[in-house]
Measured scan of single mutants.
Amino acid sequence: MPSETPQAEVGPTGCPHRSGPHSAKGSLEKGSPEDKEAKEPLWIRPDAPSRCTWQLGRPASESPHHHTAPAKSPKILPDILKKIGDTPMVRINKIGKKFGLKCELLAKCEFFNAGGSVKDRISLRMIEDAERDGTLKPGDTIIEPTSGNTGIGLALAAAVRGYRCIIVMPEKMSSEKVDVLRALGAEIVRTPTNARFDSPESHVGVAWRLKNEIPNSHILDQYRNASNPLAHYDTTADEILQQCDGKLDMLVASVGTGGTITGIARKLKEKCPGCRIIGVDPEGSILAEPEELNQTEQTTYEVEGIGYDFIPTVLDRTVVDKWFKSNDEEAFTFARMLIAQEGLLCGGSAGSTVAVAVKAAQELQEGQRCVVILPDSVRNYMTKFLSDRWMLQKGFLKEEDLTEKKPWWWHLRVQELGLSAPLTVLPTITCGHTIEILREKGFDQAPVVDEAGVILGMVTLGNMLSSLLAGKVQPSDQVGKVIYKQFKQIRLTDTLGRLSHILEMDHFALVV
């Protein structure tokens, strides 16, 4: 994948999101292997301009796509893939009243899908469409860049269908997702969380590099694949309309690839034109409109599966009536509230959605109805927002919020430890010299600072030695090549209790 991002070429006709291997024109390309080798690009942008032909009021008969309808489940399912879809609609009884809503608040519980998330729908649909058009064949390999849930859905379907599955996901995604993927037989590649989507090191860039190296491999490409919004247009939206008897006044959905909100909203605009569509985008993402909503100094966020630093091709923002931004604290607070007060075992993005819903639905009156999409299960986040310690460490809970008995030293300040200034190293000294210094002084790690004293990161003896043994660096290389740029900081005025929580999850903390 090139470091400079080429513009994806656009073909003359058809839909841009065809499933299957992508040609340089962004659509299915038939021909000899030699032709494909000559024409197939190194990668295709996940934010390529959409060429979708959908228009409100256009006859369904003019759609270029294969459409399906929700099917009634048999008493005995032939395999677990038949437990994807037909998820329950559940009334939220307490939270709406707590925040003064007059309307009825309903939750579409997508964590009841077989793999635990709304992404099971698009995973199965992308595979079925690729099999139907002859792209996927027995023994082929599926590769997908994902925040985890699409990966789980694909790995689940691949396990049943017999495909090899490789999932490329950023490091910030939970260990629970990784464990589930491994249990399903998927191979996992992790990428830096802070890598831009168009960087060769991003999950998108690495996935395309693997595709170019592995024979008979395919990126189904949830960011561009029409099967993504079509899955929701054909099934999720129809289920909502049936469950609500066609009567709903507002739908609120958090947005990642945009397939969920695009597919549902398009069908609702056709069948229930008075329904307002509300999009939820986390602070630090750029999906919301108008652009002024996205202006923030924050560039990272903890909530998973929603928000991006690019506009995915499948996201149709014209069908969203209003956007709201959400933050991590309210997302996790509301997710825990949904679990504790409503018994809905949902993930953090569901918290984002409901946090926005109780604001947006203030305009609705008694007798009206708001539906929220709860995308995934708490299963993926047992060591994250479900953990009091994690919430404390991230600053989303305060010590006084917890009532468990603490040891005698818990409320003492870090400054009472009488710490001395640490050994520091410059980023320009060599790895070999740094190892000598650390061994001589008896230290395992040291902060790396520039000549102005600005902290650049941390270097550890173990990481340097393993990097040297693996051949990633040489003793003569500058130590700046092996620094940890993500590390926890703590102030002298913070409590030892807070430091204790940090050290339970990290090997060190830097006192500043």
Rank of each mutant, 00 (worst) to 15 (best):
E110Y: 10
S147Q: 01
N93D: 11
A186R: 01
D179T: 11
L220F: 04
G258S: 11
P12L: 01
L101V: 01
E144I: 08
S32R: 13
E62W: 05
H67L: 10
E239F: 04
L81R: 04
N194F: 14
P229A: 01
A38D: 09
N228R: 01
A157S: 13
A38P: 07
C275M: 15
A130F: 07
T87C: 01
T191P: 07
E110M: 06
S61E: 15
G185I: 01
T5V: 01
R45L: 14
P59L: 11
T236P: 06
Q7R: 07
A24G: 15
R224P: 06
R190D: 01
P78I: 06
E131L: 05
G185E: 09
S199I: 05
I142S: 01
N228M: 05
H66S: 09
H66N: 06
G85R: 11
K75A: 13
E213I: 08
N212M: 07
H66K: 01
Q222I: 04
I166F: 07
F112H: 01
D179S: 08
A231I: 09
L28V: 13
C103P: 11
E176N: 01
R18Q: 14
A253F: 06
E34Y: 11
I127G: 01
T5M: 01
I122R: 01
P2K: 08
P21L: 10
A237E: 15
I143R: 03
P138A: 01
I214V: 07
D221R: 01
G14A: 01
R58A: 15
T191L: 04
D179N: 04
P2G: 10
G258L: 01
K36W: 06
S227C: 10
V10K: 14
P2T: 10
L154I: 05
I122V: 04
S32C: 01
A24M: 08
A183R: 01
G20M: 15
I143P: 01
L124V: 09
A71T: 12
P138L: 11
R125Q: 12
P46V: 07
T146S: 04
D238I: 07
I142E: 01
I261A: 10
Q242R: 10
T262N: 09
K25D: 15
S61V: 04
P74V: 14
I142V: 12
G20L: 09
A186E: 06
T235N: 09
E239L: 01
N225F: 01
P74M: 13
L124H: 09
L105R: 11
N225I: 06
R91W: 03
M89Q: 01
P138D: 01
E29L: 08
K25Y: 06
P59G: 06
K39R: 14
I240L: 01
V189W: 08
D221N: 08
T150G: 01
A253Q: 09
S3H: 08
V180F: 01
T68S: 10
H17N: 08
E270M: 05
A159W: 01
P33K: 01
R196L: 10
L251S: 01
K271A: 09
C244T: 05
L230Y: 14
I261D: 10
R121V: 04
S227T: 15
A226G: 07
T260A: 08
C165G: 12
A186G: 06
H67Y: 01
A130Y: 01
K119R: 06
P33E: 15
D35I: 15
C272V: 14
I122C: 03
H67M: 04
A265C: 03
Q7M: 05
E128S: 06
K247F: 01
P59Y: 01
K39G: 01
P138Q: 07
S3A: 09
P215S: 09
E9D: 14
R45D: 08
L81F: 09
P12H: 14
N149C: 01
N225L: 01
Q7Y: 15
I264Y: 05
G139S: 09
I261T: 14
A231E: 01
E4S: 11
R164A: 07
R276S: 01
I95G: 03
G96F: 03
K83P: 08
N149E: 03
E270L: 09
L248R: 03
R190K: 12
H203Y: 07
G162D: 12
P2D: 14
A207T: 08
V180G: 01
G256H: 11
A155P: 08
L105P: 04
F197Y: 01
K108A: 01
K82R: 09
K108V: 01
A38Q: 01
S175A: 11
G57L: 01
E144S: 05
L105A: 04
P200M: 12
D35Y: 11
C15Y: 09
G139T: 08
L230A: 07
S61M: 03
A114G: 12
G151A: 03
V10W: 08
H232R: 05
G263V: 04
S32F: 07
S3T: 07
S217M: 01
K72T: 05
E213F: 09
D234N: 11
E37V: 12
L241R: 10
